[in-house]
């Protein structure tokens, strides 16, 4: 029974990591109908910049804030100077453009930080939290906290503020949005900024759990993307739920069936769901101006 709860805790922590990446995907998708496949690189940059800043003897809090700001700026620059000039009418080309960007960012990062992995100290003590035989790292708690916080902020922004409505309007009807006096470029810029910031926060929060290196974004990107697709790419809450689901299936699959098969089990589930419900678990049939 202890094992069962331990798997549950492990699954929730991994799921939280996937959810936090998925939220980034959805934010950009909702506004510009672009799947930003460079999302994983924001996590990588967040973690590695934090490692470097901490290396200069800066305090943890300051390093955290500065890294998030720097990654946000990088995200905005990418939108302003690259994605904005991409082929606006063609989402597929834009997605391929983001793949190119992710390879570029990874290449530059591998030149700057090398191919070695780096360790980042946990936010608080390294002592595990133990409760009747079930243990978890204090850092895991921070990860889950970060997911919930980001989720709340994004949900509030998108559903309860005028700014959120403006952003959402861009994805529904670009022309009508323009006619209403909303600048879609500004909204897309904001979406990239938000998604880069959330990626950086996630990257710093999860780095202490294992290690971080120039290529850490690839796997996280794939898992986060899977969560975003499984959740239906529509709202942050749906993809968060899907992220946790993937984490739990992984943990129980590895725990109860076989650790060698855990990825196969997850992706079988995703394929199965998408065959039955192509819009994802929480997605509605697309009524907007297309997209994927």
């Amino acid at each position: 029974m202890t094992d069962f709860f331990q798997f549950l805790v492990n699954g929730l922590v991994s799921g939280g990591i996937y959810a936090i990446v998925a939220i980034g995907f959805v934010t950009i998708y909702q506004v510009s109908k672009v799947i930003n496949l460079a999302q994983g690189e924001f996590l990588m940059l967040g973690g590695l910049i934090a490692v470097t800043l901490l290396g200069t003897g800066m305090s943890y809090g300051l390093a955290f804030v500065l890294s998030v700001l720097m990654v946000t700026l990088i995200g905005m620059l990418l939108q302003r100077f690259v994605v904005r000039y991409g082929p606006m009418s063609n989402q597929i080309s834009l997605i391929i453009l983001t793949i190119g960007l992710s390879i570029l960012i990874r290449g530059v990062a591998s030149m700057f930080w090398g191919k070695d992995a780096y360790a980042l100290a946990p936010f608080t003590s390294n002592e595990p939290i133990t409760f009747s035989g079930i243990s978890m790292a204090q850092q895991s708690l921070w990860v889950i906290l970060a997911v919930l916080l980001l989720l709340f902020v994004f949900w509030f922004l998108m559903n309860k503020t005028l700014l959120g409505k403006k952003m959402y309007a861009c994805s529904v009807n670009l022309l009508a949005t323009r006619l209403m006096g909303i600048n879609p470029n500004k909204m897309a810029l904001l979406a990239f900024a938000m998604s880069a910031a959330s990626g950086a926060i996630a990257g710093i929060a999860i780095a202490p759990l294992n290690v971080t290196s120039y290529d850490v974004g690839v796997m996280l990107g794939i898992k986060g993307f899977s969560a975003a697709i499984l959740g239906g790419l529509q709202n942050p809450i749906g993809v968060t739920a899907a992220g946790f689901l993937i984490g739990l299936v992984e943990a129980f699959g590895a725990g109860l069936i076989s650790s060698g098969l855990k990825d196969a089990i997850v992706f079988l589930l995703i394929i199965g769901v998408l065959m039955i419900k192509p819009t994802g678990l929480f997605g509605e049939p697309s009524v907007g101006k297309g997209g994927l």
Partner: peptide, 20 residues
């Protein structure tokens, strides 16, 4: 006997099984 993928972000489930 447990396995993990080279790029996996967590191996805690495998370790849980080994523990018990």
């Amino acid at each position: 006997e447990e396995k993990y993928g080279t790029k996996d972000s967590s191996m805690s489930t495998q370790l849980t099984k080994i523990k018990s």
